[in-house]
């Protein structure tokens, strides 16, 4: 019984979202508000749960008062809503951005610079695809050489680089379509399997009725 109810709610909400493709309507609005409300409620709950686990429990049960410091820094972020003291929110933000950047820079050289350069120059060039890979890398980088006018030989190289970049963007776009289709597939599965197909049939009837009423008007 619970599965039936949950299946119908799931399919109903899915169809309510899809109904925007037909036209703006109350089902879409309701589903949108519900989704945002439930999402924010869940994240708020998880946030409070973490505050209790990381601050409240260590302070009250183990006397680890140091956890008060990040808690206060966290609270300071909310001072941005009070104009007279909103400068205080810059301190925790500065700490987050500064520590984040510092940490990222630490491993960045080894992985994103040295790692990638070493792997490129040590490629096995008996393999044709590695030669293509090298050409794309060199011409792609050449496209961003903005200190010299891109004419003559450099012009041809950068033009090839531009085509390579376009091909890469095309590949990236195709990946996006792949991802979109994957996600859409799972959603549609709920509409064509039990008990979702009852809601799908109901939605078709509603759309037909509505379009007929609109035509008469």
């Amino acid at each position: 019984m619970t599965d039936l109810f949950l299946g119908l709610v799931l399919a109903g909400c899915t169809l309510a979202f899809f109904s925007l493709l037909y036209r703006e309507n109350i089902f879409y609005r309701s589903a949108e508000h519900m989704y945002i409300g439930i999402g924010i409620g869940y994240i708020l709950f998880q946030g409070f749960d973490r505050v209790i686990a990381y601050v409240w429990t260590p302070v009250t049960t183990r006397g680890e008062w140091i956890w008060i410091v990040p808690f206060i820094l966290g609270l300071l972020i909310y001072t941005r809503y009070i104009k007279s003291v909103n400068w205080m929110s810059k301190w925790p933000m500065a700490l987050i951005i500064g520590s984040g950047t510092g940490l990222a820079m630490g491993g960045l050289v080894a992985t994103m610079i040295v790692g990638l350069i070493v792997s490129t120059i040590t490629l096995d060039f008996r393999n044709v695809s590695n030669i293509v890979f090298l050409i794309i890398t060199v011409t792609g980088i050449a496209y961003f050489l903005l200190t010299r006018e891109q004419t003559g030989t450099l012009g041809y190289v950068t033009k090839l680089g531009r085509f390579c970049l376009m091909a890469a963007f095309g590949g990236s776009m195709a990946s996006n379509v792949n991802s979109f289709c994957s996600r859409l597939g799972g959603v549609i599965e709920t509409l064509v399997t039990y008990p979702g197909y009852y809601m799908t049939a109901l939605a078709f009837i509603l759309v037909l009725a509505d379009s007929m009423i609109l035509k008469k008007k």
Binding site: L103, A110, S175, S179
Partner: peptide, 21 residues
């Protein structure tokens, strides 16, 4: 890669969305 592999040598594997493949 930056925080586990570079300093500790932990191997990294991913289950990735097509968007970022």
């Amino acid at each position: 890669l930056r925080q586990w592999r570079a300093p500790y040598g932990t191997d990294v594997g991913i289950i990735v969305s097509a968007v970022t493949t």
